[in-house]
């Protein structure tokens, strides 16, 4: 696959000017995400109120794919009920590992820009790390990693 289909304007823009980037002082949920293979290292913080994600922020160091994915993820789940966010996490994971559903949900919207990464297996982990981390924060597990059981490239998980 020509990687230029992945490194398109929207993704480059989110990398350059990430949305919801920084700390969230009064967070109710947090998790740390690490991809030890390439060094992507991020933190996701949430403020959950009445089963709804009222506020979300992320910070850390990562490649452009991970950063843009995190930025667009925060924009997509902010103000949404937890159940909606969880469903989106699952749909995103499916899209970048198995492939896009024939009828993607409208919530996926611009995130379909990442669909092509399925053909770059060594980079899938970069795109999926923020989503793993969000999932870990929602379930109050301390951290996420792209290795071991959580490996999105491992077969049979989803």
């Amino acid at each position: 696959m020509d990687p230029k289909f992945l490194y398109q304007e929207m993704i480059l823009d989110h990398n350059k000017k990430p949305r919801n980037f920084g700390k969230l002082d009064d967070a109710t949920h947090r998790a740390e995400g690490l991809n030890p293979l390439c060094g992507d290292h991020i933190w996701v913080a949430l403020k959950v109120d009445a089963e709804t994600i009222g506020a979300i922020a992320f910070e850390g160091h990562s490649c452009a794919i991970c950063k843009a994915s995190a930025s667009m993820m925060t924009a997509a789940v902010k103000g949404k009920p937890i159940a909606t966010a969880e469903a989106l996490v699952e749909e995103f994971r499916q899209m970048v590992t198995v492939g896009m559903h024939a009828t993607p949900s409208p919530a996926l919207a611009r995130l379909t820009a990442f669909a092509g990464i399925k053909d770059l297996p060594s980079r899938v982990k970069c795109a999926v790390l923020p989503w793993h981390t969000l999932d870990a924060a929602l379930h109050q597990t301390a951290n996420a990693t792209t290795e071991g059981d959580a490996d999105p490239a491992a077969s049979g998980r989803h």
């Binding site: 990687p3 230029k4 992945l6 293979l37 390439c38 990562s62 490649c63 452009a64 794919i65 980079r123």
Partner: peptide, 20 residues
């Protein structure tokens, strides 16, 4: 630019380098 982005884009030009 993170080296993994560099590696992916170089690969798009046929150039194989190690990143990491």
């Amino acid at each position: 630019v993170h080296p993994h982005d560099v590696g992916t884009l170089l690969n798009g030009e046929g150039v194989a380098v190690r990143t990491g």
